[in-house]
Simulated scan of single mutants.
Amino acid sequence: MHHPEENPWKVTSEQPVYDNPWIGLTEYKVINPSGNPGIYGKVHFKNKAIGVVALDDELNTYLVGQYRFVLNEYSWEIPEGGGPLGTDPLDSAKRELLEETGLKARDWQEVQRMYLSNSVTDEHCIIYLARGLQQYEPEPEETEQLIVKKLPFADVYQMVLDGEILDSVSVAAILKVQLMLTQGII
């Protein structure tokens, strides 16, 4: 019997199924933890997910609205995007904040690390809190048609509670920052 923290899966073969600049999909033939043969699919992400809660001195924050192709619906989110693996995720966070909102921040704090869907992907996320904000011109990517809203953080927190913000990175980030505010850490 395996120790509970040891890998009980045995891979007998693997076959790349799909690959593009952002993701790769591999199908594995496996022996599962009960000893039976099976298959497992894994989506490999070639970037880290990055999220930023930008909080000004009056406790306002910034949401980015955009139509999400995969969901086929509009979504309100914190500024977020991808950072290439092997690069400093803080540099990616700074780039994303500037691209999407036109903001630069003086102070940065990592507030959360998490996996986004660990049953089928290896996507890892890092969330930052950005303070000491200065406004510049946004530099959106060609695939982004964005609306930026500046709102009191308390209103954004209520949007999460009311189910108006559903993006997992945004929900986790906003709940974590609310907890930090409640505990007087911010």
Rank of each mutant, 00 (worst) to 15 (best):
Q135D: 06
Q135R: 15
Q135H: 10
Q135I: 11
Q135A: 14
Q135E: 14
Y136R: 11
Y136D: 07
Y136I: 01
E137Q: 12
E137M: 08
E137R: 10
P138D: 11
P138R: 07
P138G: 10
P138M: 12
P138E: 12
P138W: 03
E139N: 13
E139M: 13
E139D: 14
P140D: 13
P140T: 08
P140E: 13
P140V: 06
P140Q: 10
E141N: 12
E141C: 07
E141F: 09
E141W: 09
E142T: 10
E142R: 15
E142A: 15
T143S: 14
T143D: 15
T143K: 13
T143W: 13
T143V: 13
E144F: 05
E144M: 09
Q145I: 06
L146Q: 04
L146S: 07
L146F: 02
I147V: 15
I147T: 15
I147P: 09
V148A: 15
V148M: 15
V148H: 14
V148F: 14
V148L: 15
K149L: 15
K149T: 01
K149C: 02
K149V: 05
K149R: 14
K149E: 13
K150V: 06
K150I: 05
K150Y: 08
L151D: 01
L151V: 04
L151Y: 09
L151N: 03
P152H: 09
P152W: 06
F153N: 00
F153M: 05
F153Q: 03
A154K: 09
D155H: 09
D155T: 11
V156M: 08
V156N: 00
Y157Q: 09
Y157E: 14
Q158Y: 02
Q158F: 01
Q158P: 02
Q158C: 04
Q158V: 00
Q158K: 14
Q158N: 09
M159E: 03
M159Y: 07
V160S: 06
V160N: 05
L161Y: 01
L161T: 04
L161Q: 13
D162V: 02
D162F: 04
D162Q: 12
D162A: 09
I165G: 03
I165V: 14
I165A: 06
L166A: 06
L166R: 07
L166D: 04
D167N: 15
D167C: 11
D167F: 09
S168W: 08
S168C: 07
S168D: 10
S168L: 12
V169Q: 02
V169A: 05
S170D: 05
S170W: 06
S170H: 05
S170R: 04
S170G: 05
S170F: 08
S170N: 04
V171D: 00
A172H: 10
A172M: 11
A173M: 02
I174Q: 01
I174W: 00
I174H: 00
I174N: 01
L175K: 06
L175D: 03
L175V: 07
L175G: 00
L175H: 02
K176L: 10
K176T: 13
V177A: 05
V177W: 01
Q178T: 05
Q178S: 12
M180E: 06
M180S: 08
M180N: 09
M180P: 04
M180K: 11
L181A: 04
L181S: 00
L181T: 00
L181W: 00
L181F: 01
T182E: 15
T182D: 14
